[in-house]
Amino acid sequence: MIRHLVLFKLNEGVDRDDPRVVAGVRAFQELGASIPELTSWECAWNITDRPIAYDYAINCTVADRDALVRYLEHPAHQAGVAQWKEFATWVIADYEI
């Protein structure tokens, strides 16, 4: 099993209520039901306000490395990533559990 973690930081001057952000969040919320490789799916806004904190997170699991590749290449995932590229940066970690 592999856990895929992604932490997003909104670009300077971009707020959560920006229509692009709202659409990007909606796209990610729908991924859990649309990509069969996902064995678990969580995404949400950070609830703390600390200088080092990121704004939004994805936490999901897939069965193995092949499933991770299929998830990353899935058209719905690619479409969501394209949206987020317009208003955020992110860091990831993929690790076996």
Rank of each mutant, 00 (worst) to 15 (best):
L68R: 07
I52W: 14
C60T: 12
R65E: 13
W45A: 02
D55H: 02
V62W: 10
P19S: 02
G24W: 05
V21H: 01
V21L: 09
C60D: 07
V25S: 00
E30Q: 14
D18Q: 01
C60Q: 11
Y71P: 00
S34P: 00
C43L: 10
V69N: 04
A33L: 11
Y71S: 01
I35K: 01
P51G: 00
V69F: 01
T61N: 02
T48K: 13
R20L: 15
I52D: 11
I58M: 13
V21A: 02
S40N: 10
A67G: 10
S34N: 15
T61F: 00
A53Q: 12
A23H: 14
S40W: 07
R70G: 10
G13W: 05
V14W: 04
V25G: 00
V69W: 05
Y71C: 03
P51W: 01
E37P: 04
Q29N: 14
I52K: 14
R20N: 13
D15I: 04
S40F: 10
D15C: 07
Q29W: 06
N59L: 07
V21T: 00
A53N: 14
T61Y: 01
I35G: 01
A63R: 11
V22W: 11
P36S: 12
L31Q: 06
P36R: 14
Y54R: 06
A63S: 12
P51H: 00
Y54H: 15
D17W: 06
S40R: 11
Q29V: 00
Q29L: 05
I58A: 05
G32C: 08
T48C: 13
P19I: 05
V25L: 02
D15F: 05
L31D: 06
I58N: 04
V25R: 02
V21W: 00
S34M: 08
I52A: 09
P51I: 00
D66L: 07
P19V: 02
V62D: 06
A63P: 02
D15W: 03
T61P: 00
N46C: 08
A63I: 09
A53T: 11
L38E: 12
A44V: 13
W41L: 13
I52F: 10
A57C: 09
V21Q: 00
A53G: 15
Q29S: 15
Q29F: 07
D17R: 09
D17Q: 13
